[in-house]
Design a protein around this nucleic acid. Structure first.
Lengths: 225, 225
DNA sequence: TAGGCATTAATTGTCGACAATAAACCATGT
DNA sequence: ACATGGTTTATTGTCGACAATTAATGCCTA
């Protein structure tokens, strides 16, 4: 049942690339529990490859901090504690704030129009309205995803989507009772888009930072209570 | 002459770890020119190991964007253009601004005192005063390095020092005429420390962002002229 | 019985050989 | 002369076997 995780299409040519994506997905989704120690041979068999490509995949996952490795001992799946998530939220506040600022400056009018259409769609759907899609869908369906890409800053985009994204998702799968903020989030999104449309970088950054800061505080409260 | 790059002490146990650090250093220092295509066998021989560990090291460098890889074709050393450096500076402005804010909140009084001593030392040395040590030394000798660590946010620290750091250094080695700002930089450092000492997170973040923004503009001007 | 030491077992680290892919080259034809 | 096709060559991708290291187990001793 594990092997079905592997997508053996040829879009990702090498075995190491395939197992990297499959294993990352398995980790993020919690199919392999956080903190678990996993053997290389075991994993290689599960993903239908040999230890060579598997180790290459593990090195990349190590760089993304999804697995922790101790020489001659082995690897264990990273577990993201509450404190570590809070740390990431501060990073996210800084980076997405900057992304919103740059988006206000660099987004094309077509991109802004698309963002407004997206919000209109979200207004119809309670789930999306509740900010549930937060980083959940990789596509253009996510509000934050689009703002980040609107910055037209590939370094920033890669850092947020390629590095932090997965760890936040992992935590969301870990904690099933991940807090949602139905009412407020949508309104905050709207005001951010307004600021972007007005090409007001200062305001866009401020609103985005508040938005993410509020999300962080919501999580913090729920965790304590 | 290449093999001397390899440190065969036992602090980093595995061969893959050693070649990772040695190769990273060679790339950052420009010993291997940016954009160059390098063969695996060639590299393995240079660093005194086999292709297995070398490929693991390459995967980690790929994750750090120090090498670019095309399946079945090979790897080439990344070359950081002017535009890419500017992108990184916006990221840096956001992250180090947040670091300064958190440092104002979380630095111990001992750390603040150490920072003041460091500034006094820098005042004596023109080179350090000119902000030359910017990310140059990995140790506690660098002002920015200490502020980042003072944030007590490991995610933030790892991102700045572990990811962006190397790419900026690589650019500095590439462009020998990297601009320096002798007079202003030191004064800006002083005011940032004052804000941290006053536990004024807002001010510390603002000053740090201005500081880095000014550095970015200096580079931009020099590149254009 | 508890602690330490030696032995054993299991896992990781490393290597060399083979297969697969793509780029370079040459020949051939128009 | 140029383009096109096939062939060759060099490089990467993959695998299985062996070496090295660590952790566990059991034995011996105090």
């Amino acid at each position: 049942m594990y092997k079905s995780d592997i997508d053996d299409d040829k879009s990702l040519r090498t075995s190491a690339d395939r197992v990297f994506e499959a294993l990352q997905d398995a980790i993020v989704r919690g199919d392999i529990p956080p903190g678990a120690r996993v053997g290389e041979t075991e994993l290689a068999e599960r993903f239908g490859t040999s230890r060579g490509p598997l180790r290459e995949a593990l090195r990349r996952l190590e760089a993304r901090r999804l697995v922790e490795r101790t020489p001659h001992v082995g690897i264990r799946i990273a577990s993201l504690g509450h404190a570590a998530l809070m740390e990431i939220y501060y990073v996210r506040e800084a980076l997405e704030g900057m992304a919103a600022r740059l988006a206000a400056l660099h987004m094309t009018s077509e991109e802004v129009a698309g963002l407004k259409v997206l919000l209109a769609t979200h207004e119809q759907d309670e789930a999306l309205k509740a900010d549930m899609a937060y980083f959940q869908r990789e596509g253009d369906l996510d509000f934050h995803y689009r703002v980040i890409q609107g910055s037209h800053n590939t370094a920033l985009t890669q850092l947020l989507i390629g590095e932090l994204y997965h760890r936040i998702r992992m935590y969301r799968y870990q904690i099933s009772a991940y807090p949602k903020r139905p009412q407020k989030a949508f309104g905050e999104h709207q005001r951010i888009v307004e600021a972007i449309e007005a090409r007001d970088g200062d305001l866009a950054e401020m609103l985005m930072r508040r938005h993410i800061s509020a999300a962080r505080q919501t999580i913090e409260k729920q965790q304590q209570g």
